[in-house]
């Protein structure tokens, strides 16, 4: 009994390390075969339609609602100590620094990441990838790399749209509904949000999240067992792993970016 459990633990550890090694090799191969994604940019544009454009609705609507909630909650808290004039600062800083990249990343992982995994997993299950190899078409260059670059390009744009919509939502609730002064709202925001420290760091975060999410999604699809069960399991793993990766990476990046600020 004990021997068996130790054996299975060791087996799972080895399998895990094996998978990480394979994932690293997959990542490098993807980068090396990226030439096609740029030479035939139509392929990447097609994938940008599926990952970026089709994620727009969910990103815009959630951004608006998150901003509106921030406006309400922020006002509620700030008016207790008479600093409701700083509502713009609160909404903008929390969106640009954290919520924009992170929530857009989580939505992107569940909206686009899962679709990528399912698609590639099914391509593998129906042996489309093997068929490509038979025709001397490299599936990494033809299928994987365009999806990777489409995700990496789309993610920062989606995060920026999320933040912009959120600020609009905060403006709607804070200024139009509650009645915080318009001038104070924008000028307080402008004076305390720094372009390099806050906005550019937010963009860097979203690029990193884009790389992480698409890599995980593509790898899970490529590595999925070629059965219906395997593909569904891989899709679930994509959402779980990439959400965790986004949150963990966010902590690491925040610690690097904002530690020495004050």
């Amino acid at each position: 009994m004990l021997k068996q459990s130790i054996e299975s633990l060791g087996n799972r550890t080895i399998q895990g390390v094996w998978r990480i090694g394979f994932a690293a090799r997959f990542f490098v191969a993807m980068l090396l075969h990226s030439g096609t994604a740029f030479r035939r940019f139509g392929l990447t544009i097609r994938e940008m339609y599926f990952t970026g454009v089709l994620s727009l609705i969910i990103i815009l609507v959630s951004g608006l609602f998150v901003g509106m909630v921030l406006g309400l909650q922020g006002y509620e808290t700030q008016q207790r100590f008479g600093s409701e004039s700083a509502l713009g600062t609160l909404v903008a800083l929390s969106l640009v620094r954290e919520l924009g990249p992170v929530l857009a990343g989580l939505l992107f992982a569940s909206r686009a990441g899962s679709a990528i995994t399912a698609e590639i997993g099914l391509m593998k299950a129906t042996e489309q990838l093997s068929a490509m190899e038979m025709m001397a078409v490299d599936p990494i260059a033809r299928v994987v790399a365009p999806r990777f670059w489409a995700g990496v390009i789309s993610m920062p744009l989606l995060a920026a749209l999320f933040s912009a919509m959120g600020i609009l939502g905060g403006y709607l609730v804070g200024v139009l509904l509650i009645g915080v002064d318009v001038g104070t709202f924008w000028s307080q925001m402008k004076s305390s949000v720094d372009f390099e420290q806050d906005i550019l760091n937010g963009v860097i975060k979203s690029v990193v999240f884009g790389v992480a999410i698409t890599t995980i999604a593509l790898f899970e699809g490529y590595d999925a067992p070629p059965t219906a069960e395997g593909v569904s399991g891989a899709t679930t793993r994509t959402v779980v792993t990439s959400s965790l990766a986004v949150l963990a990476l966010d902590f690491v990046l925040t610690a690097f970016m904002f530690r020495g600020l004050n």
Binding site: P156, A160, W186, M189, V193
Partner: peptide, 13 residues
């Protein structure tokens, strides 16, 4: 959206 963030929301200090 990026331009909006850069011009309307942030400022270079």
């Amino acid at each position: 959206a990026l331009l909006f963030l850069a011009l309307k929301v942030g400022s270079t200090s």
